[in-house]
Simulated assay, not measured.
Amino acid sequence: MPGTLTITPLTAADRCDRCGAAAKVRAVLASGGELLFCQHHANAYNDKLRELQATIEAEPVPAL
């Protein structure tokens, strides 16, 4: 199906594009690119990513 986006789950090998920590969030840009962020940097860039209309996918938070 054209235009369908298939996202693969993040793995231990996925690293934050900003600092190299374990990636917890994937931001898919409208242009088709993607960025991976640790939670800290995802929080820091959240407003800008939303402004760019990025699709933001976060790792599920485990239940306590």
Rank of each mutant, 00 (worst) to 15 (best):
Leu29Gly: 07
Ile56Pro: 06
Ala58Thr: 11
Ala21Thr: 10
Cys19Lys: 04
Ala42Pro: 13
Gly3Asn: 06
Ile7Gly: 02
Gly32Ser: 07
Gly3Met: 02
His40Glu: 13
Lys24Phe: 08
Ala21Met: 11
His41Lys: 07
Phe37Ala: 10
Arg26Ile: 02
Asp17Tyr: 05
Val25Ile: 15
Ala23Phe: 07
Leu29Ser: 05
Ala63Leu: 09
Val25Cys: 13
Lys24Gly: 15
Thr11Pro: 08
Ser31Thr: 15
Asp47Tyr: 04
Ala42His: 09
Arg15Thr: 14
Lys48Gly: 03
Glu57Leu: 12
Leu10Thr: 12
Leu5Val: 07
Met1Ser: 11
Leu10Met: 10
Val61Asn: 09
Leu49Asn: 01
Pro9Glu: 14
Val25Ser: 12
Gly20Cys: 12
Pro62Phe: 04
Pro60Thr: 13
Glu59Thr: 15
Glu57His: 03
Val25Met: 13
Leu64Tyr: 10
Phe37His: 13
Gly33Met: 05
Asp14Glu: 04
Pro62Val: 09
Ala63Asp: 10
Cys16Asp: 12
Gly3Gln: 09
Glu34Val: 00
Ala21Tyr: 05
Ala21Ser: 15
Gly33Trp: 00
Ala30Ile: 02
Asp47Pro: 05
Arg26Lys: 15
Ala12Gly: 14
Cys16Glu: 06
Arg15Lys: 15
Gln53His: 13
Leu36Cys: 10
Leu49Pro: 03
Ala54Tyr: 03
Thr6Lys: 01
Ala54Gln: 02
Ala22Ser: 14
Leu35Gly: 02
Leu36Trp: 01
Leu10Gly: 08
Pro9Val: 09
Gly3Val: 03
Thr55Glu: 04
Leu52Lys: 05
His41Asn: 11
Lys24Ala: 15
His40Ile: 09
Tyr45Pro: 00
Leu5Arg: 01
Ala44Trp: 06
His41Ala: 05
Thr55Met: 01
Leu36His: 07
Asp14His: 12
Arg18Lys: 10
Arg15Val: 14
Leu5Tyr: 04
Leu52Asp: 13
Cys16His: 08
Arg26Leu: 07
Leu35Ala: 09
Thr55Phe: 00
Ala30Gly: 04
Ile7Arg: 00
Leu49Lys: 02
Ala27Cys: 13
Phe37Val: 10
Val25Lys: 06
Cys19Pro: 11
His40Tyr: 01
Asn43Trp: 02
Leu35Arg: 08
Gly20Trp: 04
Thr8His: 05
Ile56Val: 14
Asp17Glu: 10
Leu52Ile: 03
Asp14Lys: 02
Glu57Ala: 02
Gly20Gln: 08
Asn43Asp: 15
Gly33Pro: 00
Cys16Ser: 09
Ala12Met: 08
Leu49Gln: 02
Leu5Cys: 00
Gly3Ser: 05
Arg18Asn: 07
Gly33Gln: 13
Pro60Gly: 12
Pro60Val: 13
Pro60Asn: 10
Ala13Gln: 11
Val28Ile: 12
Thr6Gly: 02
Gly33Ile: 03
Cys38Tyr: 06
His40Ser: 14
Ala58Arg: 14
Ala63His: 03
Asn43Met: 11
Thr8Arg: 02
Pro2Glu: 08
Cys38Trp: 07
Pro62His: 06
Val25Arg: 09
Leu35Lys: 05
Arg50Gly: 01
Lys48Ser: 04
Gln53Phe: 06
Leu29Cys: 08
